[in-house]
Design a binder for these strands. Structure first.
Length: 923
RNA sequence: GCGUCUAUAGCUCAGUUGGUUAGAGCGCUACCUUGACAUGGUAGAGGUCCCCUGUUCGAGUCAGGGUAGACGCACCA
């Protein structure tokens, strides 16, 4: 083995072997366990959020596979309608063309080509991460089977009246030229203005003042509303206004919706361009005048001078014209929420169009109940509040998109505008008994990407066919995802799966935190703080990192800042930390918090941990390969250290399993780390040296220690495999044959997970080794503080040693001699004072290191003084507690007893320390 | 407006049903090339647990109120 761990040398080959051997497939035996991969965008690439979630899913998958479950990780990718179409459109634009130049058919063909070309990127990157999904079952949302499911669901919902088509106000993206759902609109507060405009009445010279943030929409006003009880305007209700600029007559109406306190108490009503006005328009049967084109220019409904103007230019023109007419009273600055499309960033217009909707109310009810009844459990639990809040206020879902890339709406129209919904055109004709020569054309719209994603739990398992997979793996075990898509995806999967299978899609939903940069900022191209997980694995030099971060920026003016920041923070780029270090980092950071700040320092720490495992294994192999480890029989004697490490390991297995069951991957990682480094390496390996390197050890003792060394390591590798698949596999291949005879080409990933072995739990061994540790630490502390070389052999004297201490000492003598580097230990007689010494307290026993020629008097006094002060504080605090009558009368007896014991101990130790201080001071 | 979350060491974070001296990693200080590992070892330093009030024998933990910040939903033109 190399002296340091080189991840590059093992990862790729290892993965290929797993995949070729078909180890990612379900075993077909055992309790079903399944996870759905939230399908990433097929043409995307892996970001930190994916890497994090995929690590968690893979750890769970590997863990359950090793536990013997029939484990399926169902993988696949999403066609991501708008996002993908935009990418390809941008490529066309770069060639000076638009999608309309190609036409629908050729454009869609082009997207398929792009998908073939770049569609493999993310799944290849997932492989680099070691993910063990069943690639043979990989699906794409536009695959034939999935498309069939989409059509089936659409038709069935339509038959039940749960999908309908209607002309309504929708969120319209005037850049992408499509409707979007409420969820795809982000409302950001921005600085705007409030314009106060005078609307003259038709007859009297009277007028009314309205306040608006969107003066250009007045071209589509069809009323002005006041509150019915507003005394100021009572006399005007029912009168007409002569709308400036258009000279249309519009009524003054009364409606409760108007807040008399706000603005002037008069609201201009534009039903075709505002959601609230739309509702009011319906209540009062107002005409709806759409004054905008689909790309948000003024249309022919408006006076000629505005036609063709962009909405924002029109706004300026309208304001200026009103000013000329002396109808603009004032303009004040005003903060308002501006709706923007989450993809395009453009300002969304409420726009009157025909769209397809899902009536969600009846679907939402069972979906709410499933969570309320505890059939589906959110982890952490408080996310169910977020879920309920949205589900209780859910609005009908606009599912049609005016795009070309996606599942086309299965509806056909004749020239009269009749609509026929069916699985195919042929079915439509048959179902509605249409004449063969009747010309039909299919609906041009495609479905919202999330419509097909909503079917993911059952469509990927073969629905609408009744497949064995569907029967076995639904409901799936757990969904691992981010809180950002609870509404987009999670809620809709629950609704659809309930509706079409009668089952819940998953039993648990583990909501992960969001990965941010080390300052808690969201990673984004414009901030220049994006970290590519592959770069953490493979490393990247400083120049390449800067180039990567500044390439293709939307705002090139930020490039310099980004470059500067990057050079400052990562002057040499990233080291190649390897997949296992990155994965372990993710596991260790997966606590319950909702934001996770990614810190490269931790990756480095866990890379070092990998190296530690590597070198510990190197040590173990050096002492076991070509040695007798008891594999072929032979007498074995387990040392106290051997029994201790086994006992300790049982605790680790127990804690690890509990942590995984609670989705506390941070705790599981911590447990594994602590045992490996602080127990196995720091103590056990050192303790073994006292046996293996001791000429007095018997063959049986050596055999016992070698056997323990190799077998504990083998168990430990299996324990850590779900988090660190590559390094554990690489080492295990060398370790396992020393533990048991195995067929060729076996992998650690299909071995069983370590189980707690009751007969290895050994309280006495645990206690004895803890005593040894205290003894050794006591001596080391004296050495450290007294500046005595760790190499210098010392003599020690024991004072006040109990029979139990003597027993322990006898049992552990070789360990203590070796690790504390003692050459002689004598026991002082009762009452014997002993020479001037530095002392360590092990319970009631004192260990004396004679000072002659070794120890600096002042240094020892200072060391003792420090210990005395600490102990005194302890005594004071405990005494205070016990002196409190209320404490003694109210606290549980066990707690009081504990305090009493503690106080007695501390007082005794304090006395000893003072005596010692006195003795040294008198020298 | 409604709702959710966060505040603990210089930094990034754990801290379970309230109960020993509040922990880890990184960073820091001193010493150490000891045959697994300097990506290492040994010994240390470092905390007003955001603030106030309360409940309690006892509060980092529970309650109320504040301060600072993050997020979601709905919004007044």
């Amino acid at each position: 083995m190399d002296k340091t761990f080189e991840p590059q040398s093992i990862e790729k080959q290892c993965y290929q072997e797993w995949e070729t051997a078909g180890l990612f497939k379900p075993s077909g035996e055992g309790t079903p366990y399944s996870i759905l991969l939230p399908p990433p965008n097929v043409t995307g690439s892996l970001h930190m959020g994916h890497a994090f979630q995929h690590t968690i899913m893979d750890a769970l998958t590997r863990y359950h596979r090793m536990k013997g479950d029939n484990t399926l990780w169902q993988v696949g990718t999403d066609h991501a309608g708008i996002a993908t179409q935009m990418v390809v459109e941008r490529q066309l634009n770069a060639e000076g063309k638009t999608r309309h130049d190609l036409g629908r058919e050729d454009f869609v063909k082009k997207i398929w080509e792009w998908k073939e070309e770049s569609g493999g990127t993310i799944t290849q990157q997932m492989r680099r991460l070691g993910t063990s999904g069943d690639w043979d079952r990989e699906v794409f949302t536009m695959d034939e089977n999935l498309s069939k499911a989409v059509t089936e669901v659409f038709v069935k919902l339509h038959e039940e009246g749960l999908i309908y088509r209607g002309k309504r106000l929708v969120n319209w993206d005037p850049v992408l030229l499509t409707a979007v759902s409420d969820l795809e609109v982000l409302n950001e507060e921005e600085n705007g203005h409030m314009w106060h405009i005078r609307y003259p009445l038709e007859e009297s010279g009277d007028s009314i003042i309205v306040a608006t943030t969107r003066p250009e929409t007045m071209l589509g006003d069809t009323a002005v509303a006041v509150h019915p009880d507003d005394e100021r305007y009572q006399h005007l209700i029912g009168k007409n206004i002569k709308l400036p600029l258009t000279n249309r007559l519009i009524p003054i109406i009364a409606d409760d919706y108007v807040d008399p306190e706000f603005g002037t108490g008069c609201v201009k009503i534009t039903p075709a361009h505002d959601f609230n006005d739309y509702e009011m328009g319906k209540r009062h049967n107002l005409p709806m005048i759409n004054v905008l084109t689909e790309d948000a220019r003024i249309n022919d409904e408006a006076p000629e001078r505005y036609r063709g103007m962009d909405r924002f230019d029109a706004r300026k023109q309208v304001v200026s014209d009103l000013e000329d007419l002396d109808l603009l009273l004032k303009v004040e600055p005003h903060k308002l929420k501006v709706p923007r499309g989450d993809r395009s960033g453009s300002v969304i217009e409420p726009y009157l169009t025909d769209q397809w909707y899902v009536a969600v109310e009846s679907l939402a009810k069972p979906a709410i109940e499933a969570v309320e009844a505890g059939e589906i459990r959110f982890v952490p639990e408080n996310w169910n509040k977020t879920y309920y809040q949205w589900m209780h206020n859910i609005q009908d879902w606009c599912i049609s998109r005016q795009l070309w890339w996606g599942h086309r709406v299965p509806a056909w129209y004749d020239d009269q505008g009749n609509i026929y919904v069916a699985r195919t055109e042929a079915e439509a004709r048959e179902k509605h008994k249409l004449a063969d020569d009747l010309v039909l054309h299919q609906d041009n719209d495609v479905l919202d990407t999330w419509f097909s994603s909503a079917l993911w739990p059952f469509a990927t398992l073969g629905w609408p066919e009744k497949t064995p997979e569907l029967a076995t793996y639904l409901p799936t075990s757990v969904l691992v995802t981010g809180f950002d898509i609870i509404f987009f995806w999670v809620a809709r999967m629950i609704m659809m799966t309930k509706k079409f299978t009668g089952q819940i899609p998953f039993k648990e939903i583990y909501i992960t935190g969001l990965i941010r940069d080390e300052n808690g900022d969201k990673m984004s191209k414009s901030k220049g703080n994006v970290i590519d997980p592959i770069d953490v694995i493979d490393g990247i030099d400083g120049d390449a990192l800067v180039a990567k971060r500044t390439r293709g920026m939307m705002q090139p003016q930020l490039a310099e800042k980004v470059a500067k920041r990057t050079r400052k923070q990562y002057p040499d780029g990233f080291n190649a930390y390897g997949t296992d270090a990155l994965r372990f980092t993710f596991a260790a950071m997966a606590s319950t918090s909702r934001d996770i700040n990614f810190d490269m320092g931790r990756v480095e720490g866990y890379r070092n941990f990998c190296n530690k495992i590597w070198n510990a294994s190197r040590f173990v192999l050096m002492n076991t390969e070509n040695e007798d480890c008891g594999l072929n029989g032979g007498k074995m004697e387990l040392s106290l250290a051997d029994r201790w490490v086994w006992a300790k390991f049982q605790q680790v297995v127990q804690e690890f399993e509990t942590a995984i069951a609670d989705y506390r991957f941070d705790i599981a990682a911590q447990v594994a780390y602590e045992f490996t480094w602080n127990q196995f390496c720091d103590w056990y390996l050192e303790l073994t040296k006292a046996i293996l390197n001791n000429p007095d050890s018997s063959d049986a003792q050596k055999r016992g220690s070698r056997h323990t060394l190799i077998n504990v390591l083998e168990n430990l590798l299996r324990l850590m495999h779900p988090f660190m698949p590559f390094i554990t596999e690489a080492i295990w291949q060398r370790v396992a044959p020393l533990c048991k005879s195995l067929p060729d080409n076996v992998s650690i990933m299909v071995q069983s997970f370590p189980a707690v072995e009751q007969d290895r739990i050994d309280a006495q061994a645990l206690e004895d080794i803890e005593w040894v540790k205290r003894f050794i630490l006591g001596i080391r502390n004296i050495r450290g503080e007294m500046d005595i070389s760790p190499n210098k052999p010392l003599d020690a004297l024991l004072r006040n040693a109990s029979n139990e201490d003597i027993r322990k000492l006898k049992a552990t003598r070789p360990f203590i001699d070796k690790l504390a580097k003692l050459q002689k230990i004598d026991n002082l007689m009762q009452g014997e004072k002993g020479p001037a010494s530095a002392t360590a307290l092990i319970g009631e026993m004192e260990v004396l290191i004679p000072m002659a020629g070794l120890i600096d008097k002042d240094a020892e006094l200072a060391r003792l003084q420090k210990a005395i002060e600490k102990m005194q504080k302890d005594v004071d605090r405990t005494e205070g507690k016990l002196a409190n009558a209320k404490f003694v009368s109210n606290a549980p007896e066990a707690v009081i007893e504990k305090e009493r014991t503690k106080l007695a101990q501390a007082k005794m130790q304090l006395v000893k320390l003072r005596e010692q201080h006195q003795t040294i001071a008198e020298l």
